[in-house]
């Protein structure tokens, strides 16, 4: 993969990750200026699910990078997109958290403390966000050097924990009988299973190129 291609693909990746946010901001602007229902009858709900689902999708895509390039060694260059995708996942998670702080808790500390202590789906969501913070902070090349590849890798296993906490948060948040979180749950489960299976395959076939 030539450098030029990588740059072009990175531009595309940025556009793909930012596009939905631009769409959201545009509709938010419309709802302020001309059409109160540009974001649907329940804009709070629309924004909440938009940012929440965006976070989970990006997290899962980030987690898919390593298994995919192990499965198809030719795609090794995919790893160069992992940080970008992971950081966008964190960005969406921050938007999702802001939605809650503004539109649900109304910036009230007492409301937030109530929610966090009483509502497990909010506790799970907050836990997921908190796990993403150290990951975002250590996303620089400097951090990798400082921590050492092994430690850095170990720390970044937290991505799985964050994704699991996020999916649990989703299930606990929806009504009983609603199965919309099923899709993302299945994808995450496949990814969780793929890691040990691919690792085992690699051990039994040492000729395959090893990489972290």
């Amino acid at each position: 993969m030539s450098k030029r291609w990588i740059v072009a693909l990175k531009v595309l990746a940025h556009a793909a990750c930012l596009g939905p946010v631009v769409w959201l901001l545009w509709h938010l602007y419309l709802s302020v200026t001309s059409e109160p229902t540009a974001l649907g009858p329940d804009p709070t709900h629309t924004v909440t699910f938009f940012t929440g689902r965006g976070t989970l999708r990006l997290l899962v895509i980030t987690l898919a990078v390593t298994p995919v390039r192990r499965l198809i060694p030719k795609l090794i260059w995919l790893v160069r997109f992992r940080r970008l995708l992971g950081l966008y996942a964190f960005f969406y998670a921050c938007l999702h958290l802001m939605t809650y702080v503004w539109l649900y808790a109304g910036f009230s500390w007492s409301a937030m403390v109530d929610d966090i202590s009483q509502r497990r789906f909010i506790t799970a969501g907050l836990a997921a966000w908190l796990m993403l913070v150290p990951l975002a902070l250590t996303s620089t090349a400097w951090s990798i050097r400082k921590l050492g590849g092994k430690n850095w890798n170990r720390l970044h296993w937290l991505t799985y924990c964050a994704a699991i906490a996020g999916v649990v948060h989703y299930w606990w948040g929806v009504k009983s009988g609603v199965r919309t979180p099923m899709g993302i749950t299945v994808v995450l489960a496949v990814l969780l299973l793929a890691r040990p299976i691919l690792a085992a395959r690699q051990r039994s076939a040492p000729s395959v190129q090893r990489s972290a």
Binding site: P36, D42, T44, A111, D114
Partner: peptide
């Protein structure tokens, strides 16, 4: 799973919901 102290009014702009 959620507070019933407040509600979101359908059809209102987001900041007034």
């Amino acid at each position: 799973r959620w507070s019933q102290k407040t509600e979101r009014r359908i059809g209102f702009p987001i900041w007034k919901q």
